[in-house]
Write a protein that binds this DNA or RNA. Structure first.
Lengths: 345, 345
DNA sequence: AAGCTACGCTAAATCGTTTTAGCATGTTTT
DNA sequence: AAAACATGCTAAAACGATTTAGCGTAGCTT
């Protein structure tokens, strides 16, 4: 923090102009007819004294913060924290830092957060959008700000996004339950019209309609506490005693649901089959191990960063920003929890 | 992003000087004898037009980035991601943003990261230090940079830190195993001399020496893959068939260890008692539920932010920076996995 | 009436970069 | 020999805030 050298100091010490030093440092020396001799001299010197340009000055001048905002629904959720981990290194390697935040799926909070990020002039956004912030997203897009949505998106907006095929992967999962002999399949989901949730619901409905089986749906409000979820699922099971399997459309619904199943002393998969969305250590270690719809977290992360960095370069080049709409497929990882119900005696 | 108004625009539109506007906006109007009438006029106008000061300009001028660096060992580890979640809001509320990174407990990587954060002039650091970065930390402290270590610290340096009483909490856990009748207690830990690990090891040794029981220690290298951990624990158990219980000194060692125990077809707690460090959903949902040494994550987070914000204020006031050294206690959450071994027949 | 103080505001320097426009000097062209 | 061009570098404006030093006026003292 002491004796920080500025570009002016460098210029003085080398008996050159600030301009020259700056041009060399930014790789614009050749195109500005700076001699190789001078280039080498500058490069050698800045390396020797380990000159570090002031980010603030640079940002002020060129308007770039070299920061990407990562707006997750909840950074402590393993799905989001693993993505956070996976996007980190490549962002760093490209000279970007990532600031994170948790939206809690709350539109008002998200709006506030976006505002603070705008104030900071972050260069790009990676967002799990909440319902009701279409305006803000649209606004960012209109201003040609590099941006990617993930986990869900707004059908009406032409933003880039990375999602999975929720309908198909859920349909596959439900079909798997049916193949295993389950016939009264309950669907526990969030009370939400977001794309990921409606996609999963649709997959459920389609699979059941194709087989002529009855539907049992439990919708739980966003932001419910775990104990609320547990109770809701217990009631759901009490009201519909015929249910022989459950599909949980998110990881934490799955965790809460498993607790409910336990409290009701139902055995998995005999009394009740179980499939949950999103894989995690909990499901893998559970006894019995839980069948999950596993999102390709690495691929999602990779596509997100790739696309964002690409947009950042296009923006730099003042070109048109191409917004990738990417839909990946999720894998059904079959484990014991869906291996068929007890034969009636 | 369009028609951004600058402080100069505001000044012109109000027929005032830039200075006056700036003083008002920074709450230094009164002490500079700006009339109440002018103050009101400015405040009203900036609210009306929703004027947003340029962070870059401000940072360039006053050297403050309003950013806190959160350097975790691995942001996708539930222990760290839950802390990330818990420090986020209070930081935001105080006008700070948090950039995160994962050190992977790699000194070289950590050094690089600190360098990039220095370049960005982050205002404060919250760090899980790795071995070998004493110099860098010392350097930050010498430069009066607000900083808190957590999870572990350097005994030789007077940095602030938040840790738990590893020796005592481990000793309690081991004592609990002894009370439950276990006599051949294995200790699975990381091959590391960091304070948290040596503290836990010490607790183990002390508890056993007090009871005259034999020690069985397995040290696993940092950064081992899960399958390596599983194999190591399996070998450990094969080599020491007399072991009747295991203490895992980290959450992921615990997960790997449990897989090993399963593969060896040992039943918990009858064949082998288990306690793991750090609570998480996996341990709570495991069958049988795993006894854990539970760190007070909320309190840790709270103390971290509180202390950092405090240091930031002191720095602002050019006062001496008080570095809090905080040791909290962890709770032993007793569950089935340590409830006593099978009676020999 | 001259000298002070208080009051209310402002000019201008500063933070450290990037970048545009242009200045010498030397070399070709015609 | 004048005009044109190439070469190698630099002066200075700009980005948008904060802050120091100080300016003019009015009222009060002596």
């Amino acid at each position: 923090m002491k004796n920080k050298r500025t570009i002016r100091d460098i210029a003085n010490e080398l008996q050159l102009s600030i301009t020259t030093v700056s041009l060399v440092l930014n790789g614009k020396a050749r195109e500005n007819r700076i001699s190789q001799e001078v280039i080498d001299r500058v490069l050698k010197f800045v390396k020797e004294v380990d000159y570090r340009p002031n980010h603030f000055a640079r940002s002020l001048r060129n308007g770039k913060s070299k920061i990407i905002a990562f707006m997750a629904e909840d950074i402590s959720n393993p799905f989001f924290s693993s993505i956070a981990r996976l996007i980190e290194d490549s962002a760093n390697n490209s000279g970007y830092k990532i600031v994170y935040c948790s939206t809690e799926n709350n539109a008002e909070k998200t709006r506030e957060l976006i505002k603070t990020f705008k104030d900071r002039r972050v260069d790009a956004y990676i967002i799990t959008p909440t319902e009701g912030i279409e305006k803000e997203i649209e606004n960012l897009v209109a201003n040609r700000v590099p941006l990617m949505l993930f986990d869900r998106y707004f059908a009406g907006l032409s933003t880039g996004y990375v999602v999975i095929d929720n309908e198909q992967s859920t349909r596959n999962a439900i079909r798997h339950l049916i193949e295993q002999g389950y016939e009264k399949i309950g669907f526990v989901t969030l009370d939400s019209t977001q794309t990921q949730m409606s996609g999963r619901y649709l997959g459920y409905v389609n699979a059941l309609e194709a087989s002529g089986l009855p539907q049992f749906v439990l919708r739980i409000p966003y932001g419910s506490t775990e104990s609320f979820i547990v109770n809701a699922v217990m009631e759901f099971l009490s009201e519909h005693k015929e249910i022989d399997s459950l599909f949980f459309s998110s990881n934490y619904l799955g965790v809460g649901g498993l607790k409910a199943v336990r409290q009701k002393n139902l055995s998995i998969p005999g009394d009740i089959g179980v499939i949950a969305f999103d894989d995690s250590e909990v499901f893998r270690m559970h006894t019995p191990a839980i069948t999950t719809v596993t999102q390709p977290v690495e691929e999602i992360s990779h596509k997100l960063v790739e696309s964002i960095l690409h947009q950042l370069m296009q923006e730099e080049a003042a070109g048109d920003i191409l917004r990738n709409e990417i839909e990946l497929s999720a894998r059904l990882v079959v484990r014991e929890s869906s291996s068929g119900k007890k034969k009636p005696v």
